[in-house]
Design a protein around this nucleic acid. Structure first.
Length: 224
DNA sequence: CCATTAACATCTA
DNA sequence: TAGATGTTAATGG
């Protein structure tokens, strides 16, 4: 079980629940460490937790029939996911891989459903997250079809720092340029060139194995 | 033109 | 020293 202090500091929605529901939620959470390169979930798995990233980075994606890895989203710290598979009671549609050493919080199924049935605050949280994610995925399709490579990289980076979905993420993420390329749908050399351009424009700072965002608003609006 | 892959050199944790 | 970054050459839609 997770300590009250750790609960408040690592689960962004803890303070949104009234005291009794918050305590119920806390008792339903376990922490787990994932080593880099390990698959946490395989396509087809049944899961029985709602999952939150505490630290590190996960990649949501799948492998095509031809064996190519496709990335659909990066899951940064304070991002919670898996509610779809729980609510629909269906197997996971996608793989989830740890890109870094990653700590996850697991809210067990029965607590998830107790909150779903009994907590207005929890339901509002779920609606807010699902709504935001829907908007994000629609925007991603739009960007794929309308923006040039620079716009794609800028927008996919910005989506990692979405304040509704990942309010605790801060301004820095440990992520390689290769992974940024996979997220944006461009090759590594292109990702490398664009990241240097964006750095010159003062929108971000490149570090080895990570980026720090300096101007999220400009990144998010890139290409308009 | 602009992107991709493959290859190689250089940097850095 | 392994993984990440920076670059270039060849190739293709």
């Amino acid at each position: 079980m997770i300590s009250p202090e750790q609960f408040l500091s690592s689960v962004f929605w803890a303070r949104e629940l009234p005291e009794d529901e918050r305590e119920r939620a806390r008792r339903g959470i376990m922490l787990r460490i994932l080593e880099p390169g390990t698959y946490f979930i395989h396509r087809g798995d049944r899961i029985d937790n709602w999952i939150g990233v505490v630290s590190g980075l996960l990649r949501l994606g799948s492998i095509t029939t031809s064996g190519k890895a496709v990335t659909y989203a990066g899951l940064p710290p304070s991002c919670w996911f898996g509610e779809g598979s729980l609510l629909k009671d269906e197997p996971r549609q996608y793989d989830v891989l740890a890109l870094r050493r990653t700590q996850v919080a697991l809210l067990n199924r029965s607590t998830f459903f107790w909150l779903f049935e009994n907590s207005v605050a929890f339901d509002r949280l779920l609606v807010r997250l699902i709504n935001e994610r829907l908007g994000q995925f629609i925007a991603q399709v739009e960007h794929d079809r309308t923006l040039d490579s620079t716009g794609k990289v800028a927008r996919s980076l910005a989506s990692l720092f979405n304040p509704v979905i990942s309010p605790f993420v801060g301004s820095h993420i440990d992520i390689s340029q290769e992974e940024i390329g996979l997220l944006a749908g461009v090759s590594r050399p292109v990702a490398n060139r664009i990241l240097q351009e964006l750095e010159k424009a003062g929108l971000l700072r490149n570090e080895s194995g990570g980026v720090t965002i300096l101007d999220l608003e400009k990144l998010r609006g890139y290409g308009e």
